[in-house]
Nucleic acid binder design. Sequence first.
RNA 1: CCGGGCGUGGCGGAAUCGGCAGACGCAACGGACUUAAAAUCCGUUGGGGCGUAAGCCCCGUGCGGGUUCAAGUCCCGCCGCCCGGACCA
Length: 1047
Amino acid sequence: MPYNFTSIEKKWQRYWQEHKTFRALDPKDAGGDGSPASNKPKAFVLDMFPYPSGTGLHVGHPEGYTATDIVSRYLRMKGFNVLHPMGWDAFGLPAEEYARKNNVHPSISTKANVENFKRQIQSLGLGYDWDREINTTDAAYYKWTQWIFLQLFNSYYDTRAKKALPITHLLNELENENYVVAPDYSVVLNSTTEGLEAISGETGIERRWTELSPEERQVVIDNHRLAYMAEVPVNWCPALGTVLANEEVIDGKSERGGYPVERRPLRQWLMRITAYCERLIEDLAPLDWSESIKEMQRNWIGRSIGAEVDFDLVDPPEGIDEPYVRVFTTRPDTLFGATYMVLAPEHDLVDRITVAEQKEAVARYRAQTASKSDRERQEGAKDKTGVSTGAYAINPVNDEKIPIWIADYVLTGYGTGAIMAVPAHDERDFEFAKKFGLPIRAVVKPSRQWLHDQSLAKFRALDPSQVVKTTAKETGQEISWDKLPAEMRQKITDAHRAAIRTVEEKLKTSTDAEWELVLGDYIREPGRFLAAMTEEGVAINSKFLDGMNTEEAKARMIAYLEETGDGRKRVNYKLRDWLFSRQRYWGEPFPIVLDEKGVAHSISESELPVLLPEIKDFKPTGTPEGPLSTIKDWLSFTPAANSQLSTLNSQLMRETNTMPQWAGSCWYYLRYLDPHNTERFVDPEKEKYWMPVDLYVGGVEHAVLHLLYARFWHKVLFDLGHVSTNEPFNRLVNQGMILGETEFHFFEYGGKAVSATEFEKLGDEAGEKGPQFVGYHRQTGERVVATRVEEMLVEKKGEKYVLKANPNVSVDARSFKMSKSRGNVVNPDKIVEDYGADAFRLYEMYMGPLEAQKPWNTRDIIGMSRFLNSVARNILGDEESHKVPNIQNAPLSDELERMMHRTIKKVGEDIAYLRFNTAIAELIKLNNEINKLDVLPRKLAEALVLLLAPFAPHLCEELWLTLGNAASVAHAPWPAYDQAKLESKTLELPIQVNGKLRSKITVPADASEADILGTAQLDAGVKQWIEGKTIKKAMYVPGRLVNFVVG
RNA sequence: CCGGGCGUGGCGGAAUCGGCAGACGCAACGGACUUAAAAUCCGUUGGGGCGUAAGCCCCGUGCGGGUUCAAGUCCCGCCGCCCGGACCA
């Protein structure tokens, strides 16, 4: 009979709650032995807090939570002061959408969802310190989100100090004239050389702060704030009625809901995250994160090193300040090969430089690209489009006059929105140049390998089916390749392959002289080749660069450009500033008021929080003002008499946008340290004790969004002296996704077996009217006909069957992401009910490595149930099977003692490295040995319970109590292992002959090498393999094996 | 196309430093207990072959090469799958 997990689990969950078993001690609290807790080693073990959706937990959530719970419980038993908190990320668009759908107020639905999540999490026995529970939608919490926003608003990034400083510092520097103002309202050092360098030798002259008008001063300040307002092209989503961050737009559609997104210029709040690009990349290196996540962040930030080059305009239009086109390139070494330029259609210069004859064509092209969504632009990527402006620019290195085009393959948002085109050495420029007949000039010498590959590719590219079509057109007959007799198709294909082989052979035997000819061809006319030569190589046709390799040539060219003032070295980033405002209701209001001129002012700290007003109709207005703008009596703001704002003498209006979903999650880990503090966001002493986070576990979906934003905020807080660490999360682990149960699919197409992948592809091509697909029910063998792949999923749950592969079809076993539409979602409540929380926890940890993707299989949980029942029987006994536990203070056999110590060592190490699956395997092994005993030594029983406690805490509490110990096992000391007792007195050594296993011998552990080799040679199993042969070499790898090399 | 990761029995997976491949669990098969079933317990289980038997031999970690006394593990070249990015100049 299985033990009664339901009552045991309820009992201990109640106990933990009542006794606050998992309370983390504040540094000043008494730490047990009388000294303050701050003397204890600390561990901050953090989960990514959930977004409480309406559907409750799925089995993916508990995977990470159980992992951190095991680590927390282990460390607590090891004597650490453990902080393991939980909270709710509850503001944001999805919660609001959910509320709208269910016709309730988001504050109500959020509360209900949180309660459900909490019930589910507690039913799993996860040991959180609930006294530290936080919720991002509580005014007491978002007061500090607003406060941090003000820190960002009132500071700037000082490029000299390479850190954020209060904006007052900037004002001081300006007033003292350490800094002066450049024409673009950026600030530069007041030193002629540095100042000039910083503004790139432009003609403008810096001005002193005192020479600026009040309006200009305001511009300077607002241009430097880390949180600022600006009119920028943004992602506006009409369906959601809000703007979205770049990170929330995928393939031109909203991440939430998949609605189309359009670009339009709007005045919005932004976070100057770009100021931190460099540090966000540099500081990744020492972190204990997976390489793939680091790489994803680096890619997202997208640093590229190159140069900025200015191309003077030929006949610049009147009244233009900057009569040149500035481009960014990563290949300044190819400047001699720049034969034309391309501007993004939206580029500012387009209107001004387009010649009269081209105005109409340009206008038409711009209208055409503007109507295209990002998605459509991407789809048309292969076919380049564009028009000439009729204007020309001068290539600064050779004074050549080159045409200026516009094309949508150049993006406004990256670099300067303009490029120099080097068609010989850039894939896109190459295609464009070929399409529009623009000159292509080689300036880098290709390698012989490249020429070889290209020569061969020319022949490979001649697809036989295309050749046939062409021929058919010439003879006036329409013969489609598919309709040719199979024999003929085969013949043509064979002939084609033979031709390729011949060419390949020929190329192999080509002489140097012949290669020189090919190279000559390339240099004369690179356009005749199939592709651009994008590899690095030796510069040619480039005057002073000739003969240099790419790296040298880049450096030389940059030096040259800096001498002449036509260009300079530059590092460019893909990352844009973070769009921080939303036109929605369910978010943190900004602690900002706007005066009559539209200038933003911060509300003083003493007036925080700015409460989110109660409102009945919270649906989006569809305008950039958002729903808060409809609350008329909330809008106008009267400052307190003692407030700085009262001196403005202006009608003040509240900011009506709200903050995005990410705001609250950018700093929540800090609030856990001091959740009830009303004076500060976190007490500095507590912050210093607990930070940084020692282990952070969560899904990979936050690799770039949350983790980048949080690092950015943390760095700002660090710069301003509010936190003590530069990075928040020392060790990050991403748990892999849990997929649905494996499904078996049989696929047939046109009477032929196909794989699922092929099948899906064919489905796409065939469309709805296309041929039907045939599959077989794997159990009944019933034939199923469908037009869509999804209809093929005919698997029935809970049935037993044997797979019998039909020779006409292929069998494909795959598991898919859990989703409502696929109907493969597993509800943890049901699993807890059927098997208990302990078995559920154990199963999730036993499935495989934490970081791996793995399929769920309910059937396998039974193994964990059996294990737990067996442990329970050994200690609690079982009436039905008349099992009476026989636990005595008996000594352990040598072998058992060794096994116990090894298990203690292995389980401890495995937990530290998050290898829970192998730790559990060890515990099962130990219990399997215990099953064989008539008398269970108490020492062994206690060790097993202690080692198992982090994994199956409910049962182990009960067992610990039964063994006569005081509750709770959560604070019992982790058992220690004795190094001396790990080793056996004898060794079993495998003996190899020529690397093949032939026998095994047992020798004393302290036997000498000579003795071992002697014994091994005499072994019967070995003798027959070495007899009559000479032993060339005999080796003994201490403790591992013996190998004889004979000949 | 680019970047990161992976490929081991019927299935999930183990082998941490190059040293006994398949730990542990599931499923399957055989047996014990039972009127029967469940539960529980014992045994077998990568493939092939030899032997009455104890036991022994050969093959085997996606494919093809290489390094090494020894390769799942390291190197080179392919194939396949998963994840992320992608007209980023």
